[in-house]
Write a protein that binds this DNA or RNA. Structure first.
Lengths: 331, 331
DNA sequence: CGTTTCGATCGAATCGATTCGATGCTATCG
DNA sequence: CGATAGCATCGAATCGATTCGATCGAAACG
């Protein structure tokens, strides 16, 4: 026995395996990757040696450096608890994850605030509708990391996935107008691209729609906001919200005040998510959430592959539920 | 001008920057990392050269190979839409993310099913209470990737973070017993470590507690399950649930059938999450969700650092809300 | 029987940094 | 004034693979 060249503490490398199997480093690599034919006998010898040495396969870090890819796509969301509290975010992210998985890519969550510089990302998906500035943007551009923006601000070099916010909002507005509503108020989101588009859609029909106020897509926040508005003398026969969660909050607050929905008040939402704890199906604009996620992930994949990618605009569909009805003459 | 050595298409490397700045590769590296002192003048020359060449800083892939770290921690959750629909999951994951971010680590979501082999992970957090087998486990062990298991199955080599399920469940049971309840039924989760523990706690007080059935932590599923049980002649003065979402489902279904909570029926939950759409505060077992997340992330960090790590057992606290009351004589 | 082809294997270059040890140089000390 | 630090810089080794081009022997070809 000659003295061992390798410290036994160190993890075995492909070179160790190759040596143990009596083949060259390149052949051992081929035996694992299968990128070129290797005789059956050699492959078995290599795998046997690997097993004996406790070698678990090629080191991903080294592979990544060689390939120039990390196999990871970053997804910028807001603060996690905020981002995922919105039930509309889940089906979307779920679909993203599904498509990425199928392509063998991982999904890295990038909470707001952290710049995440120093992590090797093959592409980044920006899905924070709220914020329109982003510290990491310049760095990504400098590094040439493909960026896919979902319903977001216009940034140079990014691919866009968007939804027909304006058409959807206008359709709901028209529906309310057809029901005779003349005095309409709207609960908005923070200033953002979707908000601007939706408000434009609403004002296509109701140029004078009153503003209840900007509000997170949160049940309690919406309740408070509309409550305060009513307390302040606000009046409307219909309230148009920018999410179903907001709409549910308005319904709950209306009932708390003895108003019947839709008898005394019509309420419309946005997104088309399930609200099983509400005994009412909301009138809303149904977004193709899963398709949005898929389109987003596919765009990222194409950009990674270096293919040209078109921006995507997804259609919406109004769903008339039980939360809107004819305007009563009283209001 | 001598012919360029480098193809202009290629991204600049640190070597290019060093050459342009007229310093050695190692000095250029030091100028960026600051791991050793570099004269102010040299640093500026290097940074200027980097700017001129459009060099965005050291390639993370190369850095990672050198350090032997990827800077990414995997978090195994179930299917995303399922995992995050449970409101108890969010504060936990949020805290994990916060601690990892502070340490400069990224968080990679590992949905069930995908083995995610080939991704370089510095550690993995396993937070799927439902499933007790995991295809990726052997591979992680073989690679020596630290594993932190949250309320999960016992696996060799893993660090555990758990919660006093049994004590919490027993405390709720005792509370109900004190209120005079003698006929208690329980809605369970799928077979899992927390479920077994909690059921043991319940049976410490009510050995004969009746089983409504196993059920996902989902409002509608719980409603259906308990509804079917009542339809089948099930009777109880109190229903103990394994999550607040389940409990809310039971409350809703009870009311739908004209039962008053807590007048006719007491309902207890678990987790201690907010249910703002319920006009009732649930009696429940409050878990320190954020602390659970922090402890989990800290354990992962310590394991990555190679430090010895103790398992963690987190305390719970019963919160008596308006969903439980004295047993009525009728039932 | 000489030559071309093909499959298996190998050696060496490469991916893009970090870091150890050595070197030269200028202050500090006795 | 000579020895000793101490700082800035550099060259070379290293992390652990993948892959291009070359080599070699055997089979297929004219």
């Amino acid at each position: 026995m000659s003295g061992p060249t390798r410290s036994p503490a160190r993890n075995p490398t492909l070179a160790d395996v190759a040596a143990a199997a009596g083949v060259s480093l390149s052949t051992a690599s081929l035996a694992f990757s299968g990128n070129k034919p290797v005789s059956e006998e050699t492959r078995e010898r290599v795998l046997a040696a690997a097993g004996a040495l406790g070698y678990a396969g090629p080191n991903p870090l080294a592979r990544n450096l060689r390939r120039g890819r990390s196999g990871v796509v970053g997804v910028a969301v807001g603060r996690l608890s905020t981002a995922f509290r919105d039930p509309a975010a889940l089906p979307m992210l779920d679909a993203v994850s599904e498509v990425l998985d199928a392509a063998g890519l991982g999904l890295l969550l990038m909470p707001e605030g952290d710049e995440h510089a120093g992590l090797p990302l093959d592409a980044v998906i920006y899905d924070i509708c709220g914020s329109e500035t982003w510290g990491a943007y310049d760095d990504l551009v400098a590094r040439g990391v493909p960026l896919v923006v979902v319903e977001g601000p216009a940034w140079a070099g990014a691919t866009y996935v968007d939804v027909e916010h304006r058409r959807g909002a206008a359709e709901v507005a028209r529906h309310l107008h057809d029901l005779g509503h003349r005095r309409v108020a709207t609960l908005t989101l923070e200033a953002s691209h979707p908000q601007r588009e939706r408000e434009a859609g609403l004002r296509d029909v109701y140029p004078d729609a009153e503003l209840v106020g900007p509000c997170a897509s949160d049940l309690v926040a919406a309740q408070r906001m509309v409550g305060a508005w009513w307390d302040g003398g606000g009046e409307a026969s219909a309230v148009v919200c920018q999410s179903d969660v907001q709409a549910a909050g308005v319904v709950l607050e209306a009932r708390r005040r003895g108003l019947d929905v839709p008898g005394d008040l019509s309420v419309a939402g946005f997104d088309g998510v399930a609200t099983p704890w509400l005994d009412l199906e909301l009138t809303t604009v149904v977004q193709p959430l899963a398709e949005k996620g898929r389109a987003t992930a596919r765009a990222a994949l194409s950009r990674i592959a270096g293919e040209p990618v078109d921006d995507v605009l997804l259609p919406v569909r109004m769903r008339v539920g039980g939360s809107t009805g004819p305007a009563s003459h009283a209001t």
